[in-house]
Design a binder for these strands. Sequence first.
DNA 1: CCCTCAATCTTGTCATCGGCAAGATTGAGG
DNA 2: CCTCAATCTTGCCGATGACAAGATTGAGGG
Lengths: 189, 189
Amino acid sequence: MRQIDQPVYHHGNLRRAIIDAALEAIGESGPAGWSLRELARRAGVSHAAPAHHFSDKTGLLTAIAAEGFEVFADVLERTAGDILEAGVAYIRFAIDHRPYFEVMFRPELYRTDDPGVRSARERAFHVLVTGAGTISPNPEQDRLTTIAAWSLAHGFAALWMSGALPESAHDDPEIVARSLVRLVFGTAR
Amino acid sequence: MRQIDQPVYHHGNLRRAIIDAALEAIGESGPAGWSLRELARRAGVSHAAPAHHFSDKTGLLTAIAAEGFEVFADVLERTAGDILEAGVAYIRFAIDHRPYFEVMFRPELYRTDDPGVRSARERAFHVLVTGAGTISPNPEQDRLTTIAAWSLAHGFAALWMSGALPESAHDDPEIVARSLVRLVFGTAR
DNA sequence: CCCTCAATCTTGTCATCGGCAAGATTGAGG
DNA sequence: CCTCAATCTTGCCGATGACAAGATTGAGGG
């Protein structure tokens, strides 16, 4: 039997194979350190084969961004409005699914108006924007708190990934992340 | 008379011209949306001329990162240990000097072991790491506070630049930044 | 004033890349 | 067994980064 969600062709499942090879390559050398032809070679197909699944190199990155936002939204939705857990989940996603994350927040790499990207992205961001709930009586303060929590999580994830933080290899990122979010937003709970 | 800090050659000052053209190109289409040959054409020189000033494309990006960290360090040092102003300055630098910022925190683009990069980078980060000063009696808490402030500033800058924030064009980023830092760290001052 | 010589820049070349076009192969359904 | 569209291949094009070899420039020494 064959997989249900993905069609199967001559290669087996070239679309998935190319995406997986791209994610691996991005993990090794960033979102620009590889070529479509290299992915094709890794998958054992001709250099023009990927073009029939992703019209462009941009198309491949668009598919990766869409898939990344889907997983991201799933992860965030599971935190069910808990701002502390959402922050930790945000950081864990960035570290566990680094290749996705490196594409998702770089709009110049892909087509941000792609329907798949848009819907998944909105689903993910909806959790964040409504996640702060009603912490303070002032809605403006809630809006600011949302941006602060989002910035904190995003910034820590980005800094961690770029290796900019001192002693970054010294602790488990999840533990640091949890301490961080608790330090800043612990009193608000 | 000639400039003091930069030697002058046949072109006038090709090294500077190429860096400036690169910064402009990065501002338009990101750190990967241009070619060395295009910069050479903009400067009116042959396609191989840039190679004598920056051995590589990586060499050019290394020079940009070093220059960026120099400016960054200057800006941060002027805040003189004020964690609130340092946070605001961090965000203002990212927005005012976006092309620098987009290269600096992407280590896979340049040679992070370059001496010029290392020294400027250490100078900038030194301000951040010692900036929290002695807010709490607990040094571990100071360390966490530093990372939190740094993450908050970096995250807001990155999210702002990627256009991910809702209503991002709606306010002056500096005002939002100042409110943010005050919201999170206002009580600590 | 001229000569030397290194720094600067040009010209030419190569493998590789993304993208396109045209054709071959495959396999599901009639 | 036949049709036909989806899939994949082959061949090609202009552009790119990198390299090699040669031409040009101009500052400093004689």
